[in-house]
Design a protein around this nucleic acid. Structure first.
Lengths: 200, 200, 200, 200
DNA sequence: AATGAATGAGTTTTCATTCAT
DNA sequence: GATGAATGAAAACTCATTCAT
């Protein structure tokens, strides 16, 4: 029952099916058949469109990265100060859209995949470098380059760590909200920029 | 505490073979045959000793957790103040022993596995809770419970995030040293405990 | 005798596409999609016209057989003696038209197919019997039936053998020209008809 | 139910299973499962031993080539004159062992495969060159090099052609025996060496 | 009539697990 | 105990065939 002009929609269904499968079965138990079933298409279609299982995963990661960038860009448009822009980046990472179990599962799987798949590694590195660089730019408006870079790296590390922990604490509601934890850190950084450094 | 004997030595070889395999091939490409080859034993032996592939992975994770605990305990013995004890915990996580590519690969793989394997999830949660709780105890000596808890969660998140990023930046030596980044954060927390809070 | 029209042209394209595909990919790697691509038509068309993959191959073989017959008939028209007629048959089989790599690949594939496909087998047998019978008729003009039959079978075997070897020696130009080898054999047969048989 | 030291026997079973499968189903309908079933082993074993389907076919062809060489060498030992040695070669090719349907099917399949598989092509070329060279050596004892080479090429072509035709005529007993046809040709060649050449 | 997207049965290949030795 | 050959179920992938457009 073929329909023309459905290609993009089908591809998106397959990507969604992949995210769902990674979440429910785990990355290494995710089969092309599961992906197809989740997407409501035939077994052969993911292959037909993407060529291989690896390509399906790559497309899925690209999709998530694009999604994240899109949301980030949207939020940054409304931000007026360095502080607000950093806040926008933080909120993007913890928005309901991004900080949900299935998306986290997929991201984590891709970090693991990055260890052995150069293509995945490359994409994630680009993303990570851009995140740190965006944060550095904002911090640099109120301090020197080195302090800004350190703050940016700390912020990005904390964001990533909270994502990682979410795997274990998805159902544990008595933890400090992730956003607030990172915002506190950022505030501390801003405070320290103003203060003559004594420590260290 | 291992019984001395051939059996324990063999089991340890198999665990080491598993870590090596996860690092080199990636978790989902790790086969029993690869593990056995890495360990220098016959194909059937991992199964013979552990009963199943899942059990081999569980044993490997337990091994890594025990290793980390052992090192942590050793370092804590020499620490004399809260600050020193927190430092000991941080240094344990970034010691040459722990913060090496193959160990990181394995840990990360287990985080992914935790999403779908209750046994893995349980072990990692226990470890994570103990880490946060240990940190909280130390922070609490100089501030109230809530601030201590937040600082502990932030510290643990930053440690985890730096581990995660290491997957992408193993060969990127111009980043801020992980230890210093976390120590800076801890210092900022200590500073903020002394200061009447104005921000936020 | 083709009806003129779009349909016949398309069918011929598909047959040409099949020959090309067999030559380039090998018989068992020839897919309907490759055939269609070679023919410059849509994936569904070969099926639409011929009904099945097997039917495409059958049509291709019929085409090659007809082509060979047509060329043979044309050359025989100009031949005036038994010797010339045998020569005409030989030259047909080694003409540039027939003795080219892609045609040889296809013929060979059909011989293999003949082992298991009764329809292919039947067609090839008819062709082979007619070749031997045509040769026998000519030889019989100068000798008895048995000697003629033997000479005809020898000639046809040598032609087939040279075709088969061409698969291995397409790029090996220092071999004896195929035509001459067969003509020598035919000459030897003619010579032996004249001589009182002593040998054997 | 593993048994040690069975490797060679198992490999031979698999090769026999391959020959049987090619004969019964045809080359392109030969599946690893059919081969395994024919050999009386599990589906996975052909892979376990040979690594891929292509490797199974290569091993099968090597086996057939070795078999032919072995028989040829055995027969050549007993031959005392050039004529006898040529006869030995001819009889090897048409012995009951070699000239049987399943072996012919396999050989033919390999000629087809040779068009696209360089490894197969190389093996067949070596075999073919050796055959021609062996025949040339014998003919050269009674004539000049060029005539000897032509006779050798003619002989080998006729042998190959009779093999090819056998595909169509396996059940057709009223044809001239293959051996006699080739022997006649060889005799004619010998005769022509003695006679001052007039023809051509 | 012609297209080419979609299907799903069938194939190769992988690998945890078993078990005779 | 230890081995590693053998199994066979399950996976990735292919492709003839179908059919809405």
């Amino acid at each position: 029952m073929p329909k023309v002009g459905m290609e993009e929609e089908r591809k998106t269904s397959i990507i969604m099916g992949t995210i769902k499968a990674i979440h429910e079965k785990g990355y290494s138990a995710t089969t092309m058949a599961t992906i197809a079933r989740n997407a409501g298409v035939s077994t052969g279609l993911p292959h037909h469109y993407f060529g291989s299982k690896a390509a399906v995963f790559n497309a899925t990661m690209s999709f998530l990265l694009k999604d994240l960038s899109k949301e980030s860009r949207k939020r940054l448009l409304k931000a007026r100060s360095p502080k607000e822009r950093i806040d926008a980046i933080i909120h993007t990472n913890f928005s309901d859209e991004q900080f949900q179990p299935s998306v986290i599962s997929a991201w984590l799987a891709f970090y693991v995949l990055a260890r052995t798949e150069p293509a995945t590694r490359r994409l994630l590195r680009i993303y990570h470098r851009r995140l740190v660089s965006n944060l550095t730019v904002e911090f640099q408006r109120v301090t020197d380059h080195d302090s800004a870079k350190a703050a940016a790296e700390g912020t990005s590390a904390m964001i990533d760590g909270l994502w990682l922990q979410r795997v274990l604490t998805a159902d544990n509601p008595d933890g400090m909200p992730a956003t607030q934890l990172v915002q506190d850190y950022v505030q501390k950084c801003f405070d320290s920029f103003d203060t003559p450094e004594i420590s260290k």
